[in-house]
């Protein structure tokens, strides 16, 4: 009698552990599945883009398209040069304006601001980072565009409507800076206080501590923040589409109107989708965007891990 009770007990026990192990095995499958799904998605997107770009690539030479500045899909002219130059222009200008401000602001918030000021500034920056970029575009149309067109461009001897590369760069800098600040503050605040104490403890000033020790130790994190910002400017669509003026020509000054790779797609996709070659050309633009962003992320990862290995923070 008692034996049979024991064996029932051990049976329940066994079936219970059996069930737990089954769930354990399953969970590793479906969690793994979710992880691999991300890879599959990336591959699928790249393959689709490649496949859809093929018609264009089979008819025109890549080098010729990349270097030609004549973009006229109706005439089957696919020169990507203006959009490429426009993209580089916008990205470089935005980053040149945004990065120093982002780093200084991050240092202020992480190392100097205290108490209520710190909370206030920090939360405002988070709010800014969360505003949809179309709002920045709208406000810029009302404020920045007239300012650039009526004052800034004439002041440097350039005539412009206010729509153009400089305006886009300025607004994109405003869009990504809060985001870069947030991430840089995080990496500065993650540093152990012992670093500060060690440096201050031999008589360094706060600024020396920041310049020589903290910026270096937080370097990989700040570097990533900047590269993520770069990626956002590079792939930005709505702000450039609203503010760049949409003329496919090689820009002759920072105040010129132009085109970036993403605006090329959004401006032309609706009306020209019926032309197979044009569609293929626009998809090829998408492919270029994906490849460049991927290369940058990959490079960033390499640099970051090297820096981290070197200083181990």
């Amino acid at each position: 009698m008692s034996e049979s009770i024991e064996s029932t007990e051990s049976n329940t026990k066994r079936s219970r552990i059996g069930r737990r192990l089954r769930i354990e095995r399953l969970s590793s499958y479906w969690l793994g599945g979710a992880g691999y799904f991300a890879i599959a998605l990336f591959v699928l997107i790249v393959l689709t883009l490649l496949y859809q770009s093929a018609p264009l690539l089979s008819e025109y030479s890549i080098v010729q398209m990349l270097t030609s500045s004549n973009w006229d899909p109706a005439q089957n002219e696919f020169g990507f040069m203006p959009a490429i130059v426009g993209t580089i222009y916008v990205t470089v200008l935005s980053m040149a304006m945004g990065t120093p401000i982002a780093i200084f602001a991050a240092i202020y918030i992480a190392e100097y601001a205290e108490g209520r000021a710190k909370t206030l500034i920090g939360s405002f920056i988070d709010v800014l980072a969360a505003i949809p970029s179309v709002i920045f575009g709208l406000v810029a149309l009302i404020v920045v565009v007239p300012f650039v067109g009526d004052y800034l461009a004439p002041a440097v001897g350039s005539s412009a409507t206010g729509l153009g590369i400089f305006t886009v760069s300025l607004v994109m800098a405003i869009v990504v800076t809060p985001f870069m600040i947030s991430l840089s503050v995080e990496s500065l605040e993650a540093l152990p206080d012992e670093l500060r104490e060690s440096s201050l403890g031999v008589g360094a000033t706060k600024w020396e501590t920041i310049r020589i020790v903290l910026l270096r130790a937080a370097g990989p994190g700040i570097f990533s923040a900047i590269l993520l910002g770069f990626g956002r400017v590079f792939g930005a669509t709505i702000v450039p589409a609203m503010l760049i003026g949409g003329q496919t020509q090689l820009p002759d000054s920072p105040f010129a109107t132009g085109q970036t790779l993403p605006t090329l797609i959004v401006n032309d996709f609706g009306e020209l989708m019926s032309l197979p070659l044009t569609q293929s050309a626009l998809i090829f633009v998408g492919l270029m965007l994906v490849v460049v962003v991927w290369l940058f992320n990959f490079g960033a990862m390499l640099v970051r891990s090297r820096l981290q290995r070197r200083w181990q923070y």
Binding site: P192, E194, L195, A217
Partner: peptide
């Protein structure tokens, strides 16, 4: 001078 509890090499 001050030496902290956690061994801390400056990033140098």
């Amino acid at each position: 001078g001050y030496v902290p509890q956690t061994p801390t090499a400056l990033p140098l």
